[in-house]
Design a protein around this nucleic acid. Structure first.
Lengths: 203, 203
DNA sequence: GTCTATAAAATGATAGAC
DNA sequence: GTCTATCATTTTATAGAC
């Protein structure tokens, strides 16, 4: 791995623990065995590292996932279940040659979600990147629904945009809920919601 | 308002904009016309202000809301709609004599949600307070459902705990979604979801 | 209880050698 | 491209007067 990605990787890894703004250059230098000089050669300033991380580690995710889902065979509900589980598994790296996280197994979806939310909050200059990402996810759900309607796998008397909103809401909801509400397991959240979603979309 | 609450209020107001950790004591002093001396007389350290804010401004919310909903007459769906709209309206102050926000109208539910999430993320010492809050909300939904089943207003062949998870998920989901996804209005998110919820709970 | 002055540490960033 | 040394600011927090 080149130095630039090394810096990004170690910063990402540190940021996951307590937020990007709470990671100091000193920490990055000590943990990653890099020096101030290297950092400021590759990046304009500290926030430039964040921008690079967001673009490299986060925004590529959906494109990758779409490719993966293309090869996945199953009913709409199975595809949805796969989607939900895939995203909380955060299989970064397993299917991607862009990302080179050396510690792939340790990316926790809760920390990942919290980091994204905090970055969105505290770095308004990056918000458009997130808006575009969410638009992509929305389109993904809508296409999944329209395809299923075409194949007559689910009921057709319902607006695909509304259903996409509904699915997206539940997706965001159980991630958020399982993050800040440890009473139940993630599996419980996903399966309970899938069951009620199914009641709504079956023919 | 006494000095302690003045400090808390101005800190809360500043924190809403870009996160608690990004507010400096200097900012608090300048904005609130208070001095270092006053701050450290009333609070142990900076994080002690946050703890006070969380306890005063956030955790009391549910208790207040429960009281309000008791006086609200309507069907379960109407109660749910009221709940959803109430919480994004964040009617802090309108019904509470505990809170004394001088700038009540400016509390934006998106900023409020982002602040809570960031605080949860970056201040692990406060997580238990949030867990308890979420448990209270969960119990609220569960009781609403059980009451509705008893009154035979909704279908009874469904587990009240599962339905509570479902409602809570959607609540968390549309808050999160409308915060980071400006394509649609909040009203669109709420109404679309309510419609599909209704399909699930009607007799 | 509230003030000012100041300490002590940490932070992001730059300069210049190699 | 990478290093070390250092600057300039800002930060939280304390001390002591009133």
């Amino acid at each position: 791995m080149n130095k630039k990605d090394k810096i990004a990787e170690v910063t990402f890894s540190l940021a996951l623990k307590c937020g990007f703004d709470n990671v100091s250059l000193n920490q990055i230098e000590d943990t990653g065995n890099v020096t101030t000089g290297a950092i400021y050669y590759h990046f304009k300033d500290k926030n430039d590292i964040l921008k690079y991380i967001v673009e490299m580690y986060i925004l590529k995710e959906i494109e990758n996932f779409k490719k993966i889902l293309k090869n996945y065979k199953g009913t709409p509900l199975e595809k949805l279940r796969f989607t939900f589980y895939y995203h909380v598994g955060l299989n970064i790296g397993d299917h991607s040659d862009i990302l080179e996280l050396s510690d792939k197994t340790n990316v926790d979806y809760k920390q990942h979600h919290l980091l994204l939310t905090s970055v969105y909050y505290q770095h308004q200059e990056l918000r458009n990147l997130f808006h575009n990402m969410n638009l992509e996810i929305f389109k993904f759900y809508k296409e999944l629904i329209e395809e299923s309607i075409e194949k007559k796998e689910i009921r057709s008397d319902i607006n695909s945009e509304d259903l996409a909103i509904y699915l997206f809401t539940i997706f965001k909801g159980f991630i958020e809920l399982s993050t800040v509400f440890p009473k139940f397991t993630l599996k419980k959240f996903i399966e309970t919601n899938l069951e009620l979603i199914f009641e709504n979309i079956k023919k």
